[in-house]
Design a protein around this nucleic acid. Sequence first.
DNA 1: AATCATGACAACCGCGCGCGA
DNA 2: ATCGCGCGCGGTTGTCATGAT
Length: 312
Amino acid sequence: MRKPDSAAANIRLKKGLWSPEEDEKLMRYMLSNGQGCWTDIARNAGLLRCGKSCRLRWINYLRPDLKRGAFSPQEERLILHLHSLLGNRWSQIAARLPGRTDNEIKNLWNSSLKKRLKNHSNISSPNPSESSELRSSNSFGELTENIIPTHEHKHNNVMNMFMKSSSFSCSTSMSTPSMFLQNYIPCDPFPTLLDNDGYNMVGGAMEEGYYGDYSRTIFEPRGLVRDNYDFSHLPPLANGDIIEEIKVPSINIKENNQNNIEELNNDCFDYNNEMSFKAEGIFGNNYQTELQENSKIGGWDLDGFILDFQMD
DNA sequence: AATCATGACAACCGCGCGCGA
DNA sequence: ATCGCGCGCGGTTGTCATGAT
């Protein structure tokens, strides 16, 4: 049997909304003393609150690194996408949206996104041949059209994307972040490439490369974040393009997971050194298992699909 | 102007987990 | 091995603001 906070057993603790004075006390204490045992923090800061309440107030409201204001459409897209992968694991979703809290995301989902998603699915036809039109014609389309519903649509025909025509041969310099980025094949942040079912194929890369804002999304392994990157001078991918060569940091695959959730949770790559490889332009749906460090053959999961590649 | 409905946000609650005694 | 405690998470409820009737 669980006991209540020891302090709560002795003192009548305050509940409900926080006053500005309480915020001030907690803020001042946290900034000068840092995080510790929340029960102690509550007591030492002179607050008649339980530690749990203080923790919640700090994490969800007072923390200096919180991003205030409404969610951007890009953030909403990301939440939808991550929710399709992770379900109601709000803390894990929040971990991929800097400055946002799990509570905030949960509230957004419950008050807004869930209803919109439901409306969207009611409108959408189960017939895939109709879904493309519907996506662009209903109010929810703007949120979903760039996202592959991971567990629902793993098409074989994705293999036809990027397999023809133009190629990219990228430089190897990487002394600055912007130069470094030239080693990546850029994607239109909101691409229009659609497969036969109307799902956007480039969007699938977002799971791997995304960690902040879709405008930064480039075709890259999971976890890389590059701010303020200007795509305008780079050749856009077009329908049917082939990815001939991509230069990326060396990829040391520490472990391989076949589970999307684990993929997101585990930092599988080491980006310390750059290495180029040939991307053969093939999207395969077979996982490369037991990849070893310095392996010449590899691949990474792009929203459930594997881009196979071979090291130079 | 008053009432009601709705949405957004804030906070609470209960549970499970990890850790140290 | 067990217990107590703190913490984090996800579900739920409470509160307030705003718009519609």
